[in-house]
């Protein structure tokens, strides 16, 4: 696949924490406008992988390219510019807990989009509606349930209509109905706006539905990569185990 078609491309990325090697020469690429689902057991380094994409972590060796640019070699300003084109949903939502839900969603808009106050308000309402939380705009993050926080985090991640959306377990802790709504929201983003999605999830049905490509991270390596059907016939036991499972967040 030519580099310019790649939204994200890992080239032999290795990441260690002390003596623990979390990523050991991981390579993959995500096509622009596609959805990439990252599976893996807990603690295998999925969140770490996402953080590499947005430059919160830097590889010890190897390279992470986003839209062709080496993330760890970017200047602060270029990194900032790149980040405004990305949205990131943290696994724990990471809402700014000193400001209201509405302000959380408005935060990236106010900082990066030169919009009139009323336009900002409209955009915030629209994003909150998309996650079904338009009524909670005035609440403080501490007044929300875990699932609600997650959805606010998603609204914030989408606030700037990013071309690459990184989501860390979007439906974890959500009831099946809401989880389904989030899934369809994400698939709409992909189809309507051409947003590249990189989704970490444990929810295999959802991964099947959303993912153009699935990958399984295990022991620091991507042990399998490809469309859902391909993975089902994998000869790797862990991969098959994943694909057989139904539940998860």
């Amino acid at each position: 696949m030519p580099a310019e078609d790649c939204a994200v491309r890992f080239e032999k990325v290795t990441k260690r924490f002390g003596s623990q090697t979390v990523l050991d020469g991981v390579s993959f690429e995500v096509r622009q406008g596609s959805a990439f689902c990252l599976l893996g057991r807990s603690g295998t380094g999925k969140s770490v992988t996402l953080k590499h994409i947005i430059g919160l972590m830097k590889p010890d060796s190897g390279r992470v390219r986003v839209e062709g640019q080496d993330v760890s070699a970017l200047s602060r300003r270029d990194l900032s510019r790149l980040r405004t084109r990305m949205g990131f949903l943290f696994q724990n939502a990471a809402l700014f807990d000193s400001i209201s839900v509405g302000d959380n969603v408005a935060f990236p808009i106010r900082r990066h989009a030169k919009l009139a106050v009323s336009d900002v308000r409209d955009r915030v309402r629209q994003k909150l509606e998309e996650v079904g939380l338009e009524r909670e705009a005035g609440k403080m993050p501490s007044e929300l349930s875990g699932g609600m926080r997650k959805r606010v985090g998603l609204a914030r991640a989408m606030a700037l209509d990013p071309s690459i959306l990184l989501v860390d377990e979007p439906s974890a802790g959500l009831d099946p109905i809401t989880a389904g709504e989030i899934d369809s929201l994400l698939s709409q983003l992909k189809s309507n706006r051409g947003t590249t999605l990189i989704i970490v999830t444990h929810n295999i049905p959802s991964a099947r539905r959303l993912g153009d490509e699935l990958a399984v991270l295990h022991g620091g390596h991507l042990i399998a990569r490809g469309p859902a059907q391909e993975l089902e016939t994998s000869d790797h036991e862990v991969v098959r185990g994943f694909m057989r499972s139904e539940g998860g967040g």
């Binding site: 953080k51 947005i54 430059g55 919160l56 990194l79 900032s80 510019r81 980040r83 405004t84 990305m86 990131f88 943290f90 990471a94 809402l95 700014f96 935060f107 990236p108 900082r111 990066h112 914030r156």
Partner: peptide, 8 residues
């Protein structure tokens, strides 16, 4: 980290 991720 979330601030950084929002390019702040």
């Amino acid at each position: 980290d979330a601030l950084e991720a929002t390019a702040v």
